[in-house]
């Protein structure tokens, strides 16, 4: 809700206080997703004193939902299931599955809607249009997006929970932080830290940081392929991340199987370091030229 209120203020910062208060009230009344969808569906044009178009605001709302609700929710639930060591109820498993499928649905709908929007295809034909125009092709792509998101979220959650079980919360948090740091380093090297939204000064820097952080987390954890856009994560980096997620998941599972919960030799720290080191080449191979 904090993220959404922030978006509401930033989007309407040039409007009178009453309008900003109205937008915050929409957030507090928990109707933001519905209102955003209605605004996009009714094709309401971007107004003079609004920062960006409604579709982008809808994407930000969904990204905030995934970052602040779905992803932590999945990790917490899986952590509880793993801690129960087989004695968990079926309801807990079902709840985790529903959480993953809901997140996957949000992720796949986000990517699918952006690509099939006529306006987007007309304005950026080089980027939008990967979804086939035939009904069968559409279904195939949607299902692929859905399962990609579901498996990605499960793999990341499982990897983090296994890291936490074996190496403690410090190792799991450290791994995630270093991973994010590498991403910001990559963006800094390529001089691409600023987000595309025309917001400057401290608010702009904060907005860019939040947008970069959230798109990275959501792109990695729920495979939102819309974020392959150069303005977000970038195609190569996103695909590379998807490959590494698979490797990370397999590595975590094998290590857990091998050690059977015993960490006497510190193998887990080693495996986490290997997983982090694997991310290091990303900025290098994704950047054939640093200048532009």
């Amino acid at each position: 809700m904090g993220f959404l209120s922030l978006f509401a203020v930033v989007q309407n910062k040039e409007k009178p206080l009453k309008a900003i208060a109205q937008e915050i009230l929409i957030v507090l009344s928990l109707t933001t997703p519905g209102v955003d969808v209605w605004r996009v569906a009714s094709e309401s044009e971007q107004k003079e004193n609004e920062l960006t178009e409604q579709r982008s605001i809808l994407a930000m709302t969904k990204t905030a939902e995934l970052t602040a609700e779905a992803i932590p929710g999945a990790v917490i639930q899986l952590s509880a299931i793993m801690a129960a060591r087989g004695s968990q109820s079926k309801k807990a498993t079902l709840s985790f599955a529903l959480c993953v499928f809901t997140a996957a649905s949000t992720s796949s709908t986000l990517s699918y809607d952006f690509d099939t929007g006529a306006n987007k295809r007309q304005k950026q034909p080089w980027f939008y249009g990967y979804v086939s125009d035939k009904a069968r092709g559409k279904l195939q792509v949607f299902l692929a997006l859905f399962f990609l998101a579901a498996f990605n979220l499960t793999t990341w959650s499982l990897s983090c929970v296994l890291l936490e079980i074996q190496g403690g919360i410090t190792l799991a948090t450290g791994f995630l932080l270093i991973e994010l740091l590498l991403y910001f380093l990559y963006k800094a090297i390529r001089k691409d830290l600023w987000y595309w939204v025309p917001l400057y000064g401290c608010p702009g820097a904060f907005m860019s940081f939040m947008a970069r952080l959230m798109s990275k987390v959501v792109g990695d954890w729920t495979a939102v392929v819309q974020f392959r856009s150069p303005q977000k994560i970038g195609g190569a980096y996103l695909s590379f991340g998807l490959g590494l997620t698979t490797a990370l998941g397999l590595n975590s599972a094998f290590q857990y199987e091998k050690k059977g919960g015993d960490d006497s030799e510190g193998e887990w720290e080693k495996s986490a370091v290997v997983a982090i080191m694997a991310r290091v080449p990303a900025p290098v191979w994704s950047s054939p030229s640093f200048c532009f």
Binding site: F127, S132, L148, R228, Q231, K232, S287
Partner: peptide, 28 residues
């Protein structure tokens, strides 16, 4: 997961596969 990604690449319009490998920055 790999299967889903392969299915996605296989079922999408071929000319957009390069957008998954693009190294273009936002500025460019």
């Amino acid at each position: 997961m790999v299967l889903s990604f392969v299915l996605l690449l296989a079922s999408m319009n071929r000319e957009y596969v390069n957008t998954f490998l693009s190294t273009k920055t936002g500025n460019i």
